[in-house]
Nucleic acid binder design. Structure first.
Lengths: 160, 160
DNA sequence: TTTGGTGCAAACCGTTTGCATCGCT
DNA sequence: AGCGATGCAAACGGTTTGCACCAAA
């Protein structure tokens, strides 16, 4: 195995370009951290990325990894899995349903759709042994966060 | 507003039955904690559940809330949002893709589907202001966890 | 009465922050 | 030289655990 070279190259080029455009410095650390995420198949967490990057940059620290990942997120170069949450959230609705999710604040609301319930995905490629359920996540920015961001933008425009 | 009475009743009845069947004691605390999750529209976290339950049971402690929630999860009475994770996980694949997710260990793998990409959900009921993307999560038990559980079951059978 | 359930406090661990230093541009 | 980026260590906050007490069957 090994990660497809062209895809990795494409991602690295985009990464460099985005950093340049946004005035964020291109450092070793950022480069290696992004490379690690970009060539991973398994959506690693910060600790795992840290351990791997440290093989090439032994003096890097975990908090640089965190800071870098959050910047990359702001720049739209990576995303996080699921809603952003530092807390586990619970759901007592065991009927088949789907979710609207705000990627900013994590707000989540159920919705129902007979059509979506009928979704059947092709065989799970022997990754999952048994499938429990198939759920659609519609991700976006909720009304409240949207308003907040507009306000913020207005202020920062006025500051200039 | 207010939560539909029939649905809540149905959930409470199922809850009591499941506790009875599994030999887990039905205590005030468990009752109030489950009720709180069952009648919530917003997928609260442990802290929020704790604050609400405390209004009725002022002496309850946060760790009882946690312990209860994990038991309810084991009993299949509630679920958690997204893969169970104590760490944030990152994804540098910004192309449209979907996920296989193991609900036990959180293992997540990408898959692609032109057909699913074409999914268009009906208007988001003014909950989301703007939709960024629609992603399908196929949830189940991965091969590795499945094997582990089989082993465990075999042992516990032998213990008797 | 017995045993699982609960409350308390302390431990744990992932993540964040303040600050002094480093090293690109 | 200047200033953003980094490393270190300490703080933070959500979650878990050990233990003694309590209460339901």
């Amino acid at each position: 195995m090994g990660f497809p070279t062209e895809i990795l190259k494409k991602r690295m080029d985009f990464f460099k370009e985005q950093l340049r455009n946004s005035g964020v410095k291109l450092t070793h650390q950022r480069m290696e951290i992004f490379r690690e995420v970009a060539m991973s198949e398994e959506h690693p967490d910060a600790e795992k990325i840290y351990r791997r990057v440290r093989k090439r940059l032994p003096s890097i620290s975990l908090d640089t990894v965190y800071r870098t990942l959050w910047s990359l997120l702001d720049l739209g170069l990576i995303s996080t899995l699921g809603p952003p949450r530092k807390t586990v959230r619970f759901d007592a609705n065991m009927d088949s349903h789907h979710h609207y999710v705000c990627t900013k604040c994590g707000m989540t609301r159920d919705f129902y759709s007979k059509k979506l319930d009928r979704l059947r995905i092709r065989e799970s490629e022997s990754i999952l042994e048994t499938v429990q359920r198939t759920q659609v996540e519609v991700k976006g920015i909720c009304v409240r966060c949207s308003r907040k961001m507009q306000l913020k933008n207005r202020f920062s425009r006025e500051e200039k």
